[in-house]
């Protein structure tokens, strides 16, 4: 079985510590170059399949555009992937163009299963996987958490997150495209041995013509996030000026209504139950009911 994992390299902006408005208040160290976290989970699922499938699997990594995060790509290879393909592309591409380029690459690799992250950390479009399935004319499952493979016939049994904690198990014929949801446990890092055995990883360039595909939409502008506004209620008129000023300084009167529960978990639970009983959500325990 051939599995392709699409990896998006992103420059994740986690801070805005600069002083220069022209650079959008960005400094070089405000970014880390990494692989999109959801894609890392997709890779973990592919490697799990490689380990447990009786016939094994060949895991190919597919990335689009110039190599930004070489260290991270090498890390992914060290985890146990077999090939790394780089699709040549320059400049901004919309999801339609991206997925069309990826689809042609997948066709070249002749993959049985394509995995990608549910959405990226930088643009959060969440379209690439679905559009990829469209281009390839394959079934598409989103929010996948776990993949099992059928012993008879080419199909996969996938467990997906259906929102609000609902878990759904689907049976999907292969080849297919799955977009993977980030899990709770970060995949294990590669061992030193794996890195040492890697040697110099070959990056295979796939040159495809991007000019033939027109974008479906064009980005007009992008704005950095605004600072969050702290809601302030107007001061209570009944208070004297001192009270109003101290209320303003402390935030608002609303903030003080909460009660902090301290102590060990058991007493905290007791506190929550008492609170719920006092506010009428729970019926208070009746005396003697337990004895009877």
């Amino acid at each position: 079985m051939r599995i392709v994992v699409c990896l998006k390299q992103i420059a994740h902006t986690y801070a805005r510590s600069g002083r220069d408005p022209d650079s959008n208040y960005l400094e070089p160290e405000d970014k880390v170059l990494r692989i999109n976290p959801c894609d890392e989970f997709a890779l973990a699922l592919a490697l799990e399949a490689k380990e447990y499938l009786p016939g094994g699997a060949e895991v190919s990594l597919l990335t689009l555009g110039p190599i930004l995060a070489q260290i991270e790509l090498v890390r992914c290879l060290a985890l146990g992937a077999d090939w790394l393909f780089q699709v040549d592309a320059q400049g901004y591409l919309d999801p339609w163009q991206k997925s069309s380029l990826l689809a042609r690459s997948v066709q070249k690799i002749e993959a049985d299963l394509v995995l990608c992250g549910r959405e990226s950390l930088d643009s959060a479009n969440g379209q690439t996987g679905a559009l990829l399935a469209h281009h390839l004319n394959m079934p598409f499952v989103s929010g996948v958490r776990k993949i099992d493979f059928g012993t008879e016939g080419p199909f996969a049994v996938v467990r997906r997150a259906a929102g609000r904690g609902t878990r759904q198990v689907l049976r999907c014929p292969l080849p297919a495209v799955f977009s993977v949801e980030a899990g709770n446990t970060i995949p294990a890092p590669p061992s030193y041995d794996q890195k040492r055995n890697l040697g110099s990883p070959p990056i295979q360039k796939l040159v495809l013509d991007a000019a033939g595909v027109a974008p479906r939409y064009v980005q007009e502008a992008q704005y950095p996030p605004r600072p969050r506004v702290k809601p302030l209620t107007p001061p209570d008129n009944c208070l004297d000026s001192y009270g109003r000023v101290s209320e303003l300084l402390s935030g608002s009167s609303m903030e003080k209504k909460g009660r902090m529960l301290t102590g060990d978990p058991e007493t905290q639970v007791e506190g929550i139950i008492t609170f719920l009983q006092e506010s009428g959500v729970l019926e208070p325990e009746k005396e003697g009911e337990l004895d009877g």
Binding site: T185, P187, S191, Y192, Q194
Partner: peptide, 16 residues
């Protein structure tokens, strides 16, 4: 950790 790649799962986030 280095030979087997078995870092406890709780510590993986910190190590990442």
């Amino acid at each position: 950790v280095l030979d087997r790649g078995r870092l406890p799962s709780e510590a993986r986030e910190m190590m990442r």
